[in-house]
Design a protein around this nucleic acid. Sequence first.
DNA 1: CTTGCGGTGTTATAACATATCATTTAGACG
DNA 2: CGTCTAAATGATATGTTATAACACCGCAAG
Lengths: 167, 167
Amino acid sequence: MEPQRHPTEPVGFARHDHSHCVEDALAAAEARCLYEGLRFTPVRRRALEILLERHRAMGAYEVLERLQAEGLGAQPPAAYRALDFLVANGFAHRVERLNAFVACNHPGEDHIPAFLICRSCNRVAETVALPARAQLVSAAAASGFEVERVLVEAEGRCAACRQSDSE
Amino acid sequence: MEPQRHPTEPVGFARHDHSHCVEDALAAAEARCLYEGLRFTPVRRRALEILLERHRAMGAYEVLERLQAEGLGAQPPAAYRALDFLVANGFAHRVERLNAFVACNHPGEDHIPAFLICRSCNRVAETVALPARAQLVSAAAASGFEVERVLVEAEGRCAACRQSDSE
DNA sequence: CTTGCGGTGTTATAACATATCATTTAGACG
DNA sequence: CGTCTAAATGATATGTTATAACACCGCAAG
Ligand SMILES: [Zn+2]
Ligand SMILES: [Zn+2]
Ligand SMILES: [Zn+2]
Ligand SMILES: [Zn+2]
């Protein structure tokens, strides 16, 4: 119900002060919405908070469950609408491989995300994919294809899971 | 029901001799299965043929429909099993963005596919993503993440669709 | 023959996503 | 302040994609 307070919760695959990262990201989102005239409604705010709390990719129905528990929308469309808003405005990304959503690690930075997805613990780390995009754009140009959006996702195993495997 | 015979049917976004390309790919798959001791059963063979005929990304249920029409399996698992076999052995790829499958353009070549997906006509062209993989692997190494599989998909518009747009 | 394994048939259900229409709310405007 | 409008939400229903689970069959090794 309330954010986890352990100061070294893993995010992506690194440890960090989780309580601050949730608060900061939420505050930043709030500020940016105000600035850009976007409506950061309770459902949307809470949906982002849910993604941030876990710092994992979460399915829409998983988010929905938590919204329901607090009376913020009871049906699938509520969750999808909130998540669509977050994705459309760069507060979160959709991870195609998992049919799931994850809070953005570089909000407000105008970037092309790339994801590292651990197939054991399902955690997701976000990095950037600019070189991949450049390569693809030039490859595409040969056939007259115009690239609008690029999606880069790597599947593998994170350090922690590889470690625990060999134990 | 029977393969399209138009000699300049588009594949990916280029034109080519489609009738031969279906036959050739099927024969090559057959040969490779024989060589590697894989069982190229009627359902699997026909599923690949269906993907090749269209040379588009097809949903599992779309493939299923066509299999059903020929009495080759009536339920979803039949299609998923056949498609899983094709993907596992490199005869086809899964396009995550579309939750769909497409016959491989470089069978037997041990490659990392990248896809160009036209958001208008839904056609898919396959190209290669080696540089993207290298970049990702090195980015991942910093956090101890081991990349096993890389997925690169670009969304945009093909030459034909851009053309017809401006008309 | 018989035993095991891979492939298939079949049922049921899980998981993900959207169309549609009614209702409410927030803000713009006169 | 009222009233209009557009955006957001509520609610119902349904569509789409994917898998779990178990039964059965055929083939080939032992
Ligand atoms: Zn991001
Ligand atoms: Zn892990
Ligand atoms: Zn391929
Ligand atoms: Zn097109």
